[in-house]
């Protein structure tokens, strides 16, 4: 029984990373209808930067992440203002999603290529001292990193919700989400709100990348994988509900862990995807979508 509980806890740990990825997509897609396909690559870039500073200068990855957050906020702001701004005025059926997806995906490919050039395709493991240390509860051992991932995920979720409810930025963001034209008429700078939101989403991606590099091995191709896992969480969670994508991410982590425990680890993505197909047949709008 202990083994199963252990597996479930591990699943929650990796699910927290998917939840964070899903949150970073749900924030920009659910509120502002911006489609991004580069957040996974951004988080792997952040993971590599953490890895680099740790191996070269022995800087604690958490400290690196604190430095990286403003930097990636600027990157997100830059991407939105330079590349995505001209598509924001389009109506959705005019191919706005297509353009946004292809531009961000192109940027993602370039980031991946850059990673290949700088760090090659070798799997990298960051050898921090607390990587393998665990908390013992009876015969169950929970890695510190998993607990941290879960706690930080909750903090980020609460933080984003507070940001949306309490601050001026959040209020103007929700106004843009409800009715773009009225929001612009009442003096809200729509493009700036979009850019700042994209920046925040990039920061969430950095946090996900930090925990990914602490729990798994990193290679450039993982970026696309993380992107699609994040989008999967958004779809399962109901297209843009923030809490829903977090819960969906944790469910995905649990499904993967249980597949590895009862069947083959190589087939965990297969089971996950078949589950997604079944969900789309039964409830196409996702698990936690708001009622229409």
């Amino acid at each position: 029984m202990g083994g199963l509980t252990q597996t479930l806890l591990g699943g929650i740990g990796s699910g927290a990373i998917y939840g964070l990825m899903g949150l970073s997509f749900a924030l920009i897609f659910g509120k502002l209808k911006i489609c991004s396909y580069l957040n996974g690559d951004l988080s792997i870039l952040a993971a590599y930067l953490c890895f680099w500073s740790f191996t070269l200068w022995h800087v604690e990855p958490f400290i690196t992440a604190v430095v990286l957050c403003p930097l990636f906020f600027l990157i997100g702001y830059f991407v939105q203002t330079v590349f995505l701004k001209k598509f924001m005025a389009m109506e959705i059926w005019q191919g706005r999603y297509q353009s946004q997806i292809m531009v961000t995906w192109g940027i993602g490919i370039c980031i991946m290529a850059l990673e290949y050039m700088l760090w090659t395709a070798t799997y990298r493991t960051m050898g921090v001292s607390y990587r393998n240390s665990v908390v013992r509860m009876g015969d169950i051992a929970v890695p510190y990193v998993d607990i941290w991932a879960f706690v930080v995920m909750l903090v980020v979720l609460v933080g984003v919700n507070l940001l949306l409810k309490k601050t001026t930025l959040g209020i103007s963001l929700r106004a843009c989400s409800n009715d773009r034209v009225s929001a612009m008429l009442s003096g809200i700078n729509y493009q700036r709100v979009c850019a700042v939101t994209f920046g925040i989403s990039a920061v969430i991606a950095v946090i996900a990348g930090l925990f990914y590099t602490l729990t798994s091995q990193v290679t450039p191709a993982v970026g696309v994988d993380l992107t699609f896992k994040g989008w999967m969480a958004v779809i399962i969670g109901g297209m843009g509900s923030l809490g829903g994508s977090i819960v969906a991410g944790i469910i995905m982590g649990l499904v993967e862990a249980l597949t590895s425990y009862f069947w083959l680890p190589a087939l965990k993505e297969v089971v996950l995807f078949v589950g997604l197909l079944i969900l789309l047949i039964v409830k196409p709008s996702g698990l936690f979508s708001k009622s229409r």
Binding site: K86, V103, G106, G108, I109, C110, A113, E115, Y116
Partner: peptide, 22 residues
């Protein structure tokens, strides 16, 4: 000949095409 060169070329081409003539 380095890894990623092909991806870089295609990605840049895609970005430029999308920005210049959608």
């Amino acid at each position: 000949p380095f890894t990623g060169g092909q991806h870089m070329a295609l990605g840049l081409l895609l970005i430029i095409i999308m920005m210049v003539s959608r």
